[in-house]
């Protein structure tokens, strides 16, 4: 792992939690694992279990159905690789209320830390895939990389206020230990609860 991956995942999510008011927040994989420890909001959609990579697509659907609500998707780099086409689908639909955050630690953290095909671990330092560049060429108008917690703390509010679709890439450090995300409850009931909460918030 390189020193590029410097931000604590937990601290970066805490910054988002501190800023969050009434936005929809969709989380998956490592971000979901940590988010449920620091936030419990009716407009959280914790996508565990998931079809890996599909949080960006669920978020897009919510954003299109509810253009009055800001939707923030917290994705991982491994998950993003599973659904790169969604970057194009999102930018084609161009919802102004959609923000995609990619927490890029260069590895499949929840499966034990294997390098992704996009990372320097498999490709070498000079040819790692940059998710900000991918998002940009796919049509995201606003793309920003955050390499330190200070950058994220000082820039997150302004970044999230930009019209969507926007993409932020946070270079996060991998988490060790018990890293498997756990479902916070029965999936069907959570989906029903989320739908009702979103309907009530209009």
């Amino acid at each position: 792992m390189t020193s590029d991956h410097a931000i604590s995942l937990v601290e970066s999510l805490q910054v988002l939690a501190d800023l969050r008011t009434d936005e929809v927040v969709v989380t998956t994989m490592g971000a979901a694992r940590e988010w449920v420890k620091i936030c419990n909001h009716p407009l959280d959609f914790v996508m565990v279990p998931s079809s890996m990579g599909q949080a960006s697509s669920v978020g897009l659907g919510i954003a299109l159905a509810r253009p009055d609500k800001q939707v923030i998707v917290c994705n991982g780099d491994g998950s993003m690789l599973m659904n790169l086409g969604s970057l194009i689908t999102i930018s084609t639909q161009a919802p102004k209320n959609f923000a995609l955050l990619i927490f890029d630690n260069g590895m499949y953290e929840v499966t034990g830390g294997q390098a992704t095909p996009a990372s320097t671990g498999l490709r070498g330092e000079k040819c790692s895939v940059q998710f900000d560049e991918l998002a940009s060429v796919c049509g995201f108008g606003t793309v920003q990389v955050f390499k330190t917690l200070d950058e994220w703390q000082s820039g997150a509010k302004e970044f999230l206020a930009q019209p969507g679709p926007i993409c932020g890439v946070l270079k996060t450090a991998p988490v060790s230990g018990n890293v498997s995300p756990k479902s916070p409850g029965p999936a069907k009931q959570r989906a029903l609860n989320f739908k009702e909460a979103l309907a009530a918030d209009s």
Binding site: F45, S51, G53, Q54, S57, V58, G59, L60, G61, I62, A63, L64, A65, R66, K69, N83, G85, S86, I88, T89, T92, Q93, A191, F194, K195, L198, A199
Partner: peptide, 25 residues
């Protein structure tokens, strides 16, 4: 509203998000 996707796996999940948001996809 027509939503063209790049790969079919997206369709079910986008539709799920639309449903959760109160639409009928």
């Amino acid at each position: 509203q027509v939503i063209n996707v790049c790969r079919e796996g997206e369709t079910w999940e986008i539709a799920a998000g639309l449903h959760l948001g109160g639409a009928n996809p």
